[in-house]
Write a protein that binds this DNA or RNA. Structure first.
Length: 301
DNA sequence: CGCCCTACCTGGTTGC
DNA sequence: TGCAACCAGGTAGGGC
């Protein structure tokens, strides 16, 4: 389940192995992988062949590569099981290979990439690639399709004070807010549960009860857990999430809450609980993360 | 507009 | 053994 740290690992791989390369061929093997590109697979290929990729960028769980001198960018989302792999052209096709992009050359920064191609592989087909106009005035070639996605907590331009004020205005609960990509991007179910465990906050706490220090603390924990995961290559439960070279990260062994039902809380020893939540699961320590007391919400300021 | 819910998709696991 | 139900979950879009 790729969230911000896993997507950043992939972005770094694209930056090293794909940036600057000129595209010679695009093969779309499954139409669903390109469904966000409304003009269709042939148009997608036509607009890319003969062009070169610019630097790799990321916002939250989205990543993109500007297509030089076109005013467009290729946008990618890994969904739940998507992989962007740099493979030798002669390597056998993966079972769930959806899109193949071939290049004329290796990037000047990585001559050893000669003879490799970029593959989008995705078992569950929630992810995909598409091509979009760039938002005018944004230096990094931000695709217009994700202009509504909030900046992520590792972005220097993320506005902590505005995030706190948004929490205070909302009539929702804290985990819902963490997963709302228009408030803060890059946080998914795993890192939400991990940050809430670290912050000793229950997932159902109303956001309107968050004080400025509590919001600041929560953001600190989100940033800390993501930075730690990034440092070890991200979280992998199996071979589904990998970097562009097919390697898994090591953060799964460092998780404190997610996936640890009935295992002792690493702070107090109480068994971690799993609760059905929004058609998925929330993992939390019933002692460290006390459920909110039900009472009338305070009036908005 | 704010908030909430559902559909989308595949393969591994569980239960009968 | 076979088959159905369940589980993983990010996002767009629709209902109210």
């Amino acid at each position: 389940m790729p969230e911000l740290p896993e997507v950043e690992v992939v972005r770094r791989g694209l930056e090293r192995w794909v940036r600057g390369r000129t595209i010679t061929a695009v093969e779309v093997r499954h139409p669903r992988a390109i469904r966000r590109h409304h003009a269709g697979p042939a148009d997608f290929a036509d607009r890319l062949v003969g062009r070169a990729f610019g630097p790799a960028h990321r916002r939250g769980k989205y990543l993109w590569l500007p297509v030089e001198s076109t005013g467009t960018s290729v946008l990618g989302h890994l969904g739940m099981s998507g992989q962007l792999l740099v493979q030798p052209e002669k390597a056998p096709d993966e079972k769930h290979l959806r899109i193949r992009i071939r290049f004329a050359d290796a990037p000047p920064s990585a001559p050893e990439a000669a003879g490799t191609e970029l593959r989008f592989v995705d078992q569950r087909t929630f992810g995909g690639l598409s091509l979009h106009a760039q938002v005018p005035g944004e230096a990094d070639g931000l695709p217009d399709a994700i202009a509504h996605i909030a900046r992520d907590p590792l972005d220097p331009a993320f506005d902590d004070a505005a995030f706190h004020e948004a929490l205070r205005r909302r009539r929702t609960t804290v985990k819902r807010a963490l997963l709302d990509q228009s408030l803060i991007s890059g946080v998914g179910n795993i890192y939400a549960d991990e940050a809430l465990w670290r912050a000793k906050l229950h997932y159902d706490r109303p956001t309107a009860t968050m004080t400025r220090p509590r919001s600041a603390e929560l953001l600190d924990h989100v940033r800390e857990v993501m930075a730690e995961a990034l440092a070890v290559g991200g979280t992998s439960f199996d071979s589904l999430y990998v970097n562009v070279n097919g390697e898994s990260g090591y953060f799964a062994r460092s998780l404190d809450a997610y996936g640890r039902e009935d295992e002792p809380c690493r702070r107090c020893g109480t068994p971690i609980r799993r609760r059905p939540w929004m058609n998925r699961s929330s993992y939390y320590c019933p002692r460290c993360q006390r459920p909110p007391v039900r009472r009338t919400l305070p009036a908005p300021r």
